[in-house]
Simulated assay, not measured.
Amino acid sequence: MVTKKGYTFLALNAVRALSIIALLLLFASSIVTMVQDVKSVNAFIVAGKADPNIRVAEGNSTDVDCISTDTDYIDGSTVPNQPAGAFWAVLNRLLIIFQVIVLIMSEVGWPAAFFSRFFPILGNEFGLGALGVIQCLLGAAVLSHHVDEFSLVSAFFLFSIGCLNILLGLIYRESAKTRRAPKAWREQYQDVLPTTAPLGPPRALVMASTGSSAAWEREKEGADASRSGSLSSQKSGMGFGRQGEKAALARGYTLTRPGETLPRYAPKPTVTVRDSTVSYAESETVA
């Protein structure tokens, strides 16, 4: 039966799977949008050479400008109609792709040491709040431009997952990534599984014949008597007196007595030497 921790584990991993899917969709849509922007810029440059109303900057084919005031973006692209607009548009898509790759690696959890050292907010010691904030920023950056339907759906989906990750981060805080880790699922049932003790070597099975039933009964009675005797001997000990010493010597144990020592706090013995000359003088006076 799945416990509360099990449902939490499944729910958090389901959100992680949706987060990875949303990041992959944004990755694909960014590449598609970047290719369309490059094609639109090239077509705009070709049209500028044929139409005198469109001016192309000299020395840089990607730096385009338009005299017409009713065009803010290059037709069919997300490139703004301003100096170096194509450069910043392509750089924006490349940065989005790089951030998406980093977030996917963070969701997968590899390499954990890299994120713990260089990106701690995406490591295992932090929750899902920072991840959700970055996803919302990426989604808002794409939704703030006029994009196609594929990019629009991908960005909106990622923004929704980012809001959900922020909510989960506020609920579980720094323990969110620990709760969804497969290691936590194994530790949940670690105490439930029975512990098996190491078994000894297999005992030989002796089959007795039908004619030796009496011997079998006598052997069984002897085993019961020896078992009861061993139990009684375990329950009643000989103590540490003379009887215990005799019982130990009878079983083949050797008893050794420790050497006599003084405790550490005892004073050292001092030797007093009598003055022989004084005692000799006293003996002469008495005589």
Rank of each mutant, 00 (worst) to 15 (best):
V133Y: 01
P80R: 15
I104L: 07
R179D: 12
W110L: 14
A140M: 03
Q188E: 13
L158E: 14
I96W: 04
W185L: 15
N81Q: 02
Q82K: 14
G123I: 06
L131D: 03
G129K: 01
G127L: 00
L91P: 03
A140C: 04
V90P: 07
C136N: 05
S77N: 10
S116I: 03
I161K: 13
L128S: 07
C136W: 06
P182S: 12
M105L: 15
R180G: 00
Y73L: 08
F157E: 11
L103C: 02
W110E: 12
Y73H: 07
T71F: 03
D72E: 00
E187Y: 12
D72L: 11
V90W: 09
P120L: 13
Q188D: 02
L170Y: 13
I104V: 10
F118D: 11
M105G: 15
R117H: 13
A176M: 09
I96H: 06
Q99L: 03
Q82P: 09
F114A: 14
A113Y: 11
I134F: 00
L164T: 13
I166Y: 04
V79A: 12
M105P: 01
G76S: 02
R179W: 13
A155L: 05
V142Q: 09
G85L: 11
A130P: 08
T78S: 15
I101L: 01
L128T: 03
H146A: 15
L122A: 11
I121S: 09
G123Y: 00
P111S: 12
T78W: 11
V142F: 00
V147I: 14
V100A: 15
L168Y: 11
F119H: 05
R179A: 14
A84H: 08
L168I: 06
G85W: 07
C136P: 05
F87N: 01
L94M: 14
W110Y: 15
I96M: 06
Q188L: 13
V133L: 04
F159A: 14
R93L: 13
F87M: 00
V147R: 11
V142P: 06
I171M: 07
A184T: 04
L138H: 10
R186A: 09
L94T: 12
L152N: 07
F126M: 05
C163Y: 04
M105K: 13
D72N: 00
F159K: 06
F98K: 11
W110C: 08
R173E: 10
K177M: 00
T178P: 01
L138S: 08
V100K: 01
K183M: 13
N165Q: 04
R186I: 01
L158M: 15
N81Y: 07
L138A: 04
D72G: 08
I166T: 08
A89G: 10
A112V: 09
I171V: 15
P80F: 15
